[in-house]
């Protein structure tokens, strides 16, 4: 009971804040300017697992195989997606129902969301030509890599609607994130 009361008292300022924030807060300093819709869209490249930031466009694995060659991906990642200087893009060969983590630290197989694969290709590939791929090319490359890793069939069309729906094998496979709170130890009862 005493603990409960203490907790309520500690929460009181926060609860009061919640009440007042029902009305939109007004800025304190009035410094900074308002970006235009176009400016926001141009920079809005982090892709949510919901895919809400995905641009229009489409691509298939077959088209992606061509883009993979045209854009020089093979030079670093190998002609077949492995064996180059850059990280391998192909899962390890294993039993069909194995724990997906055993398939290796390979983005298009371990990532819990296909949106992460699209996002990384879009923002960070190719080396020294980052940001130059068209949306169609990124959809196609994503389809190509997901197909090579047996996540989607060769003829599946990826676009802003279908990409977030791709069921990655590791969707539920990662441990819960730390529930971080200010002034709390990392893990209760742990010697660290």
């Amino acid at each position: 009971m005493g603990v409960f009361t203490m907790e309520m008292l500690r929460l009181l300022p926060f609860l009061m804040l919640l009440g007042s924030s029902a009305l939109a807060q007004s800025p304190t300093y009035g410094v900074g300017s308002t970006p235009s819709e176009e400016e926001i869209r141009a920079w809005d490249i982090s892709i949510s697992p919901t895919g809400q930031e995905l641009p229009p466009g489409r691509g298939t694995a077959k088209e992606g195989a061509l883009v993979y060659l045209q854009k020089g991906c093979a030079a670093c990642h190998g002609a077949a997606g492995e064996g180059g200087m850059a990280p391998t893009l192909l899962k390890k060969q294993a039993e069909p129902d194995i724990d997906p983590w055993q398939l290796g630290r390979v983005l298009p197989i371990r990532s819990p969301y296909a949106t992460t694969v699209w996002d990384y290709i879009n923002r960070a590939m190719p080396l020294n030509g980052e940001g130059t791929l068209t949306a169609d090319e990124v959809y196609a490359l994503t389809a190509f890599l997901l197909h090579k890793n047996e996540v989607i069939p060769e003829d599946e069309v990826l676009d802003a609607q279908s990409l977030p729906k791709v069921k990655m094998p590791n969707r539920e496979g990662f441990a819960p994130l730390p529930d971080w709170k200010p002034g709390k130890p990392r893990l209760q009862g742990y010697p660290y």
Binding site: R110, T116, D119, Y120, F174, A175, L177, Y190
Partner: peptide, 28 residues
């Protein structure tokens, strides 16, 4: 960007782990 969920960016993905004991020691 202020968002409604964990975005699983490439940096986030690289820090994912399967082990709850390891994950709980993350961030801080």
């Amino acid at each position: 960007k202020v968002v409604d969920r964990y975005y699983m960016t490439y940096n986030d993905y690289g820090h994912l782990t399967q082990d709850p004991k390891n994950a709980a020691l993350g961030y801080q």
